[in-house]
Design a protein around this nucleic acid. Structure first.
Length: 182
DNA sequence: AGGAAGATCTACT
DNA sequence: GTAGATCTTCCTA
């Protein structure tokens, strides 16, 4: 299990280090497990692409809260899963953009896209602001020491006003990364 | 109360 | 490649 101090760092670092970790979603007696293969980092009020850009709102309060919690919200009819991650006095989160199915995920469902993986793993608003650090939680992230991969990076996808550096990270040559782009 | 925007996805040409 | 569906939140009146 990753501890709270893992998430108490710059979002870009957390985004990069979340690659290869396992995302576990408990759903009744079932478990959906996916390996994180693509992430993006978002900052606070200085980041024009961030949901925190226009200040605190009811739906984005999670971004100001403790690192290590989920932040889930709807865009274009899709729920997107983020993990709150930032330095103690700052604001930020990491978007999970794609996972590789490991266990429990129906082969009918695809997981190579932020809206698709939430559907495949039955993640929605009800799971907003829950801890991924607690063992009892319905969503958690663990490290199984998977590290045989190379990391690629690019600009964020689907963002109208991006920052001038790369904040999207993905595992090179993994077929579940959402798009071929370098 | 109504309209527009958006960290998307699918289907179509 | 582009168009339309989708649905929650926010802005204006």
């Amino acid at each position: 299990m990753l501890k709270k101090n893992f998430y108490e760092r710059d979002p870009a670092i957390v985004a990069k280090e979340l690659l290869g970790k396992l995302l576990i979603r408990k759903f009744g007696k079932k478990k959906f497990i996916g390996r994180i293969v693509e992430t993006e980092a978002y900052y606070g009020e200085d980041d024009p692409a961030s949901r925190a850009y226009n200040g605190k709102k009811k739906f984005n309060l999670a971004m100001w809260k403790d690192p290590g919690k989920t932040f889930i919200y709807m865009v274009h009819g899709n729920w997107l899963l983020n993990i709150v991650a930032h330095l103690p006095s700052e604001v930020g989160a990491v978007l999970i953009r794609a996972v590789e199915p490991v266990k429990g995920i129906s082969s009918k469902n695809r997981t190579d896209g932020p809206g698709r993986l939430t559907k495949a793993m039955r993640i929605d608003k009800k799971l907003n602001e829950i801890s991924v650090i607690s063992k009892k939680s319905r969503i958690l992230i663990v490290n199984d020491n998977y590290r045989n991969f190379k990391i690629g990076e690019s600009k964020r996808i689907g963002v109208s006003r991006d920052l001038p550096f790369n904040l999207r990270f993905f595992i090179l040559n993994n077929p579940y990364v959402s798009k071929e782009k370098t």
